[in-house]
Design a protein around this nucleic acid. Structure first.
Lengths: 258, 258
DNA sequence: ACCAATGGTTCGAATAATGAACCACATTCT
DNA sequence: AGAATGTGGTTCATTATTCGAACCATTGGT
């Protein structure tokens, strides 16, 4: 791995549950020498990508990201566009709608919108990270990603989040084939108990799958009427979102999307 | 310069007016060899920090920043806190209030709030970049930054934005001495014609100046009453914002802040 | 058909990254 | 008090990586 990749990969160890990381800990997490980590972090710190809370203490993500995220959003208003699509989807289905983007081998949530129609709803967190194998969003992404990527993802240890989580690579491959036929991935209590989600993939300008659009409902509320509503609304919204963010549908998805 | 710093510095060439940059152009801008730029951008692309719009075309900032910015905001809700302080400040003064953070040798706008009291107002843009020498925010930062940093900033070519912009390093040094005495930096039509701004510095946990809080009003509306209102409100708000984001006031500023 | 751009690639020479051992300082036991 | 273990940070000879001039392959304009 090149030096730059090493430096950037250090940033991936920061998460909502681990917002501050010390030098030694980061060295342990990454398997890199302490001196190396220190030098890389110094470079990152110089450019404002990380900062140290108090003098000579743990590192945390820096302010540079606020500026760069704003610039990204100005160049490609993906979040903004997603937000409007999500609002319509949440309104039409009465359930929680969200968009997640592929980030390495996981999905990170870009935006979500709740419906106000019911007192109970599936709740989300900003920048929440979702596994590929245990969510409908992840399955929809895998179903329309290159075989090499799928194999790499299924080769990783697959964690069981609930009693229902499917962790057998072979059966997951079968599921993916079904998703490819249907266009929609479905997940019942795979990631969280009592949650039933439907998802469809999103694509970029090169017809590469970059994430998913999903609707999440409580299992208790799911019936054939709601399911039909979610599926038909999703089939309309997903291709629209891809197109309005400058993306194009690959032939394999265009066939099954309508 | 290390390889990592080179890679990260490539990101600084992206701006609102230059959201897409080609390989050759980036090579020219940075002064780095085309092959070097290509390798660095490939590393950045692998981690989602940049992406290519269509296959084999110009680069733009990637989706990774959306996630990292969300994580930063979750760890340090600076923007959120700033927003509430700005709302109060805009409400109290009837003018535009904004917070900018130091990013290398320029300031980038983190947040801003307009007042609804007047039909005319000073308008801002997301992630707008402000020069240090030609804005009240910049002067307030320089006044409370280490001499070495100030000299480095004044050694750069100082661009004149308006007919009023002060570009003489010697006279700027005099101005900075006054700001150090007063605690507030004032700028009349230095950056934009018809804009009169007041600013005070913000500090982090190490008592290092990291940005500024400012109020911008149209020159035509500025009178002694408004000026007094802005100054007294600013004197209250700036130290409060520093404290509520986990920062501490350095002795040199604490003396003049009240 | 030509030229001048573009993005991307190659490979010996030059340079920068590496990591074991080392500080100085806290904290926490004995 | 003193030893033991932790922390962030530094040093420097060895080594592996990065650099960059020259090179393709394509594209678009004249």
């Amino acid at each position: 791995m090149g030096t730059v990749s090493k430096a950037l990969s250090l940033l991936t160890y920061f998460s909502r549950t681990r917002s501050h990381i010390g030098l030694s800990e980061l060295s342990r997490l990454s398997g890199l020498n302490k001196a190396t980590v220190h030098r890389l972090m110094s470079d990152l710190q110089e450019q404002g990508f990380v900062e140290q809370a108090e003098s000579g203490r743990e590192y945390r993500l820096g302010v540079a990201f606020l500026r760069l995220a704003a610039l990204r959003e100005a160049a490609v208003p993906m979040r903004e566009i997603a937000q409007t699509v999500l609002s319509e989807l949440a309104e039409a289905t009465g359930e929680t709608a969200h968009v997640s983007l592929l980030q390495g081998q996981t999905l990170s949530t870009l935006a979500y919108v709740y419906s106000l129609q019911h007192g109970t709803r599936v709740t989300m967190e900003d920048a929440e990270v979702l596994p590929l194998h245990a969510t409908s969003s992840g399955l929809s992404v895998l179903a329309f990603s290159p075989p090499a990527f799928v194999e790499a993802a299924l080769a990783e240890p697959l964690e069981a989040r609930t009693a229902n989580t499917e962790t057998d690579p072979e059966r997951l491959r079968v599921t993916l084939a079904q998703v490819r036929q249907d266009g929609i991935a479905e997940s019942i209590a795979n990631f969280e108990d009592d949650v039933h989600t439907h998802a469809m993939p999103l694509f970029d300008a090169r017809q590469v799958c970059i994430g998913a659009l999903a609707v999440a409902a409580p299992v208790s509320r799911m019936d054939s009427t709601l399911r039909a509503s979610i599926r038909s609304n999703l089939r309309q919204a997903a291709p629209r979102l891809t197109r309005s963010t400058g993306g194009f549908l690959p032939p394999s998805f265009r066939e099954v999307s309508v």
